[in-house]
Design a protein around this nucleic acid. Structure first.
Lengths: 235, 235, 235, 235
DNA sequence: CATGAATGAGCTTTCATTCAT
DNA sequence: CATGAATGAAAGCTCATTCAT
């Protein structure tokens, strides 16, 4: 987005480098400390996303990280400490992705479509994001509330939408008085729910919500819904 | 709703009677087997909703039911068997509540508002419904797919909405070609997400989403959104 | 002692019966629940006495009891709960032994000798008593303070000594104004220390304090000391 | 004591200086190796005295010393090696304190009182001494027996008492034939037990044995007891 | 001289479940 | 119909110690 500076924070799991770490086994010392830590964080993200907090045992994680249980305590202090860092990293990556969005406020309709497209796409491609959030909500946000860094990652999406709503209103295409937070929640809710409840929904709807056409259809429906909600004269 | 017969199925956890057995202790024989079973089912619903499947231990449940572990196996065979019955009971109650909705298809706008109001209200008053569904989705629907009775409780809500959409289209107030499933998902998603992600959202939005005014505001926004989506000339 | 009723409380580890429990292995169901519990309590007494609280692992205990770790938690809830019961049982047995003492208040000198003899003998024959007390004192009495039954076992020895001191004073052989608590502590201290610090003492004294003659010598010295302290005209 | 040369050995934990190094952090090189070593030894003394050998973990010690685990192995080889040095240091300090006692053999009664006063005071002011000795006795003296320097610190107290007993006997105020070791043990036992078993005793006696008046009363009782034991005509 | 990284074995405790009456 | 007793496996975590620079 033109109006926002782009400086994605460093992220462990986002880093793709990793040099010489192919097929390393515990016991060999070739790997750097940072690599071990990153491996654990990455593995924990997957395991917690897949099995939840209780179901995601430290053994599952250490095995997935090709390390040993003990290292989790060495680097993260406790299972909870590790989970908190997983959440922080998850938010950081989401933040970075939002910051990387390039939008033109002078074209509010197209840009709003772009935001929706981004959100639908991000949730679809990062299913971990959804299950991790669900897990944290099951625990009533107790872990993220312990994070000191969590506040730093307050989603820029709402600010972006506010900008677009104001621009659109100025141009006379959007209704005035729209609350950015509401529009943000509308987009997030529809994109989130579709992925979050996929399994129970398909048990009753009898459809495969993962099919590309199904996803595209839902994305278009969201776009229609949002535009009809904010525009004065929807197409 | 006028067009649907009302025959709520028997539900363990919906039953509120059972007063005579207050202060009963395990070990006394006075309580009927049905009561012990019901106590466990009710307790399990709460515990699973609160702690998830892995976090909801057999011991937590038996203690909450003022019974002993052994009884869970006596009545439900296994922890998984109990969880499946909890899910079935949860769906049954949702079904019953939807069936109890009285709507007039000749007034599609008011009725659609009524549906939204019902969904928002139900999710708000039955937070267990949300966390149980999330838990089951974390497990990719593996438990509900094992249920033989699950299919019986396919939500009548979509059928209701289809009826209203058709009636509104006939009357010339609703756009034609609207897909009932999409509208249903839109309503469910917005109502669900608001409750489901309450804890993580409030950590960043800094607002109390539980406040009655906040809930009312969100309900009104959903109504506006849905009506602007389906109506030809929204108010 | 003539003036005290004799009704030793039931004690797990004091019971010698144990019927059919010879050579039982875990896995066979022949043993009664009470036997398993008793075995654990008895084994825990030995292990805690030998290795201390931290050093006395639940595995050591369960093996010594020819049972498994899990049963400790089944019957005692936690390692700490088990240790508390060990302490209670230890006090109960000491109590019972003191109650079984038969003394004649009309012969205060002989009876006082009898008390000393008993204490020296009891400490010598029950080294567990000493190390368990040391362990509990290392923990600043935190476990025994959690015991509800602990108060019931307040040592009758002081009351006995008070009786003897009063009788002796009446007869004109003991100094008047002697405090029973002081005399009790004097006896306990000398008998206790000799056993408690045996190992470090013998490292420096270069003597075997366990030798029967050494014990007899020390007992006689205590008797001399106590009598010279309380008697008007010591022999 | 006049008759004994005064040459207190160097003691790590007795040194109180070290002021310039306040607020030093591990990682900075400004501190001398000797300081790090001393910090560990001092910290270990406290931790072992408080938690026992098993309970006194390497981590607790290194944290208390504001150092890291690795340094313990660097300087002391092992946890056991550290504990042995703690014991040696403890004995050395006791030795030094005894050597610093100034007594006049020509006044045996007053000097004996002085010895008792010293012992009672030392135990009272150095509770670590007691719990460390108890811990070592729990381990049956296995650590101190591995110490090569331990023998060097054989308590001079017995020799002192022997001197006083002989002097008193010569003067006709003390009974002849008294064994110095017995008198020493009597004093040590009474002073030791009072502190060692403070916590369990107060649980039953219901008194605060730490109160200055209580300590003074006990010291006086010990003095009376010892004098009545050794004197021909006690006051 | 000093230290960050790593580790295997052990710790207490909890898990869901079955045995046996 | 109901239950006390028992259990193997696994959980999260801490232990003293060594590696490698």
């Amino acid at each position: 987005m033109a109006t926002l500076s782009r400086q994605p924070a460093a992220s462990a799991t986002a880093r793709v480098s990793d040099k010489k770490s192919a097929a390393r086994r515990p016991g060999t010392r070739e790997q750097s400390a940072q690599t071990t830590r990153d491996n654990i964080l990455r593995a924990a993200t997957k395991v917690f996303a897949r099995y939840g907090y209780e179901g995601g045992s430290v053994e599952k994680i250490s095995q997935a990280a090709k390390s040993v249980d003990r290292m989790i305590y060495y680097y993260f202090g406790s299972k909870e400490g590790l989970f908190i860092e997983v959440l922080e990293d998850m938010y950081r990556r989401m933040n970075d992705a939002e910051l990387a969005l390039v939008l033109d406020p002078e074209q509010p309709v197209a840009s709003l479509k772009g935001v929706i497209d981004f959100v639908v796409s991000y949730y679809s491609k990062n299913p971990e994001f959804i299950t991790l959030l669900n897990t944290e909500n099951l625990h009533r946000g107790k872990h993220i509330s312990k994070s000191k860094r969590a506040r730093d990652y307050s989603s820029p999406a709402i600010a972006i939408i506010r900008l677009l709503l104001e621009s659109g209103a100025r141009q006379g295409v959007f209704r005035s008085g729209m609350v950015a937070r509401d529009v943000y929640l509308l987009i997030a809710a529809t994109a989130y729910f579709y992925n979050s409840n996929r399994h129970t929904l398909s048990a009753f709807l009898g459809e495969d919500l993962k099919a590309p056409e199904a996803i595209a259809h839902w994305r278009d429906f969201i776009i229609t819904t949002v535009l009809r909600t904010v525009m004065i004269k929807p197409p």
